[in-house]
Design a protein around this nucleic acid. Structure first.
Length: 265
DNA sequence: ATGCCTGCGGTTCGCAGA
């Protein structure tokens, strides 16, 4: 079973790239982030025509996540437990969607995660990011207790280690790389999750995001912030992890590329 | 030190992203 994640940066702007990816890579499941549209505006017909079921948790203008699956999506959860607002009265942000998929060999649970960016760190956005990470960890702890194959996939907006950035020194004051951010990510992983890419490779220079600005792609000035975290029951079945880097070289690309895992499921 | 680039909303510039 192939499970992929991709921050698509507007599903409307990237529909052609999306259908091409589905056709060429044939993922069984694709988690999308930053669809940037409400549920009713998601191109369901085009995705169904490609052979996929869809669950959407959208929002006007910003954020928005979705899960596409060849097999039916069940037990859909929209949003993390607890409040999702920037403050007490803030509106919910569409950043978390979870569902189960029943296969011939059992159930797999998949989440599409768009973790808050958190910049600038001296504003309320940074504590919001850290609180959101705490809520994600609390929920992950509950899910891990189910002892199922579980894939927490998405744009974590976290650079885990210096080797995950071409220029780590440029990120030391950034919300993606601050010690508290990396510590919170380690705490999540240390619940018993496996970073799928790092289970397959110790190499540096493996990136999933290149900024649109300042020729970052041409200079390979990238960072690795899109991750698939696996429960032990999923990690035991891990075969390969692939970063679909070629997608960044297309016309009008997303600034992120898809990452996929193949699981023996 | 700052903008670089892109998408969105809503009108053409401000905000957000990372």
């Amino acid at each position: 079973m192939r499970i992929a994640t991709w921050n698509i940066n507007s599903v409307k702007q990237r529909l052609g790239h999306l259908t091409a990816f589905l056709s060429e890579q044939a993922p069984d499941v694709l988690c999308l982030q930053e669809i940037k549209c409400v549920d009713e505006a998601f191109p369901v017909a085009e995705v169904e025509a490609a052979g996929y079921n869809v669950a959407v948790h959208g929002q006007k203008t910003f954020n928005g996540v979705a899960i596409l699956s060849r097999l039916p999506l069940e037990d859909v959860r929209r949003g993390l437990p607890g409040r999702d607002g920037l403050d007490e009265d803030g509106p919910d942000q569409a950043r978390y969607l979870e569902a189960t998929i029943s296969t011939a060999t059992g159930v797999v649970r998949v989440a599409s995660i768009y973790l808050p960016n958190g910049n600038p760190p001296d504003t309320a956005k940074y504590p919001y990011k850290l609180r959101w990470m705490d809520r994600l960890s609390a929920h992950a702890r509950e899910l891990l207790a189910l002892e199922e194959p579980l894939v927490l996939a998405g744009d974590y907006n976290v650079i885990p280690e210096p080797r995950d950035a071409a220029r780590p020194e440029a990120w030391v004051h950034d919300a993606l790389f601050l010690p508290q951010t990396r510590s919170a990510f380690r705490s999540l992983v240390d619940l018993g999750l496996t970073d799928a890419l790092r289970a397959c490779s110790d190499e540096s220079g493996l990136y999933t995001f290149w900024d649109y600005q300042a020729g970052a792609w041409q200079k390979n000035n990238g960072i690795r912030i899109d991750h698939l975290l696996l429960s032990p029951q999923a990690a035991d079945r891990l075969e390969t992890t692939v970063i679909h880097k070629a997608m960044r070289a297309l016309e009008k690309p997303s600034d992120h590329v898809p990452v996929s895992v193949d699981l023996k499921l």
